Computed example of a mutant assay.
Amino acid sequence: MAKRIQSGQGPSQRQLRVGELIRRTLSDVLNRAEIHDPELNAMPITVGEVSCSPDLKVATVYVMPLLGTAPVDEAIKLLARHKGELRHRIAHELTLKYAPDLRFRPDETYDRLDETRRLFADPKVQRDIAGDDSPEDGAPDDEAGRDD
Rank of each mutant, 00 (worst) to 15 (best):
M1C: 07
A2K: 15
A2H: 13
K3M: 07
K3P: 02
Q6K: 09
G8S: 09
Q9Y: 12
G10N: 03
P11L: 06
Q13V: 13
R17E: 13
R17A: 10
V18L: 11
G19Y: 05
G19E: 04
L21G: 03
R24Y: 07
D28M: 05
L30M: 11
R32H: 10
E34F: 03
L40C: 09
T46E: 10
V47F: 02
E49D: 14
E49N: 09
E49G: 04
V50D: 01
C52K: 00
S53G: 04
S53I: 02
P54V: 09
P54N: 06
D55F: 05
L56V: 04
V58H: 12
V58D: 11
A59S: 09
T60C: 10
Y62S: 10
R81A: 14
G84C: 06
E85D: 10
R87M: 10
H88W: 09
H88D: 06
R89A: 03
R89F: 13
I90S: 00
I90A: 01
T95S: 15
T95Q: 15
K97Q: 12
Y98D: 07
A99P: 02
P100D: 03
P106L: 00
P106A: 02
E108M: 03
D111T: 07
T116D: 01
L119G: 00
L119W: 05
F120C: 00
A121W: 06
A121F: 07
A121G: 06
A121D: 15
D122Y: 06
P123D: 07
V125I: 15
Q126M: 08
R127T: 14
R127A: 15
A130C: 01
S134P: 00
P135Y: 11
A139S: 14
A139C: 01
E143A: 14
A144P: 00
A144G: 04
G145L: 12
R146Q: 13
R146V: 14
